[in-house]
């Protein structure tokens, strides 16, 4: 994963974390009562999963590209 790709993924992960936090405060807290901690944990967990998924797919893509380049060089 390049630095710009990592930054882009991090940015969208942060956006998702904030969105989940806002949805938690606006809609879920009216049902389950005020609880910042669990909401923050859920939002952060989703953000980390989103970032890690992107990281893994980028790493897999790079590995595939390297394998293809090696195969082309051998040919």
């Amino acid at each position: 994963m390049t630095l710009s790709e990592a930054w882009d993924r991090l940015f969208w992960a942060a956006i998702i974390v904030v969105l989940i936090g806002l949805v938690w405060i606006r809609f879920l807290e009216s049902v389950i009562g005020p609880c910042d901690g669990p909401g923050l944990l859920v939002a952060l967990a989703v953000g980390i999963v989103f970032f890690a998924t992107g990281w893994r797919s980028a790493a897999a893509r790079k590995k595939r590209e390297m394998t293809e380049t090696e195969a082309k060089d051998e040919l």
């Binding site: 936090g21 806002l22 405060i25 606006r26 807290e29 005020p34 910042d36």
Partner: peptide, 9 residues
């Protein structure tokens, strides 16, 4: 904490 955000939303 997030009280002001709760108020805003």
């Amino acid at each position: 904490g997030l009280e002001n955000y709760r108020f805003a939303l």
